[in-house]
Simulated assay, not measured.
Amino acid sequence: MEKRMKQLPDQVLDRVADYFKVLSEPTRLRLLHLLHERERSVGELVEATSTSQANVSKHLKVMLNAALVARRPEGTSAIYSVADETVFRLCNSVCERIADRIENEAEQFRAVSFVDSN
């Protein structure tokens, strides 16, 4: 018996695409990785990424709007933390898939011989 996939509404697909757009920026992935270690202030993130404060703040705002990070005030600073831990399962899954593809490609290269060794 053939199993048919349910068609997803455009609104759902748009939301999923927006989520992936947030994750498509390398600086945001770096920030998430740093925040996975521990919560940090904007200044700490600027120092750790060697990126401007304006750039870090811009990316944090995008991730805050996507509910990937949380923000809390602490004195005159803002402290950021990861709000959605599921993002790491997704990233790990993607990294594992990429690693598998790279390993498979490497095996194909190893199997190729341009010169007969006999």
Score class of each variant (00 low, 15 high):
His33Cys: 10
Glu107Gly: 00
Asp100Trp: 04
Asp10Met: 15
Lys6Arg: 10
Asn92Thr: 04
Arg28Gly: 07
Arg28Ala: 03
Glu74Pro: 04
Glu74Val: 12
Ala17Arg: 11
Asn118Phe: 13
Asp10Tyr: 14
Phe114Ala: 14
Asp18Lys: 11
Glu39Leu: 05
Ala111Asp: 09
Arg89Met: 05
Glu74Leu: 15
Gln7Ser: 12
Val82Lys: 01
Arg97Cys: 13
Gln53Glu: 12
Asn55His: 15
Cys91Trp: 07
Ala70Asn: 05
Glu37Met: 11
Gln108His: 08
Val22Phe: 05
Glu44Leu: 04
Asn92Pro: 00
Leu68Pro: 01
Asp18Arg: 14
Arg38Ile: 06
Glu39Pro: 02
Ser50Thr: 12
Glu47Met: 02
Glu47Val: 01
Phe20Pro: 07
Val69Glu: 01
Lys61Gln: 05
Ala66Arg: 04
Asn104Met: 02
Leu32Asp: 04
Arg4Pro: 06
Arg89Ser: 09
Ala83Gly: 07
Phe109Asp: 04
Ser50Gln: 14
Arg30Glu: 06
Ser52Thr: 06
Tyr80Glu: 05
Leu35Phe: 01
Ala99Trp: 04
Phe109Lys: 06
Leu29Ser: 05
Pro9Asn: 10
Tyr80Phe: 10
Lys6Asp: 12
Asn55Phe: 12
Asp18Phe: 12
Ala66Ser: 10
Val115Thr: 11
Arg72Met: 13
Ala106Asn: 02
Phe20Cys: 11
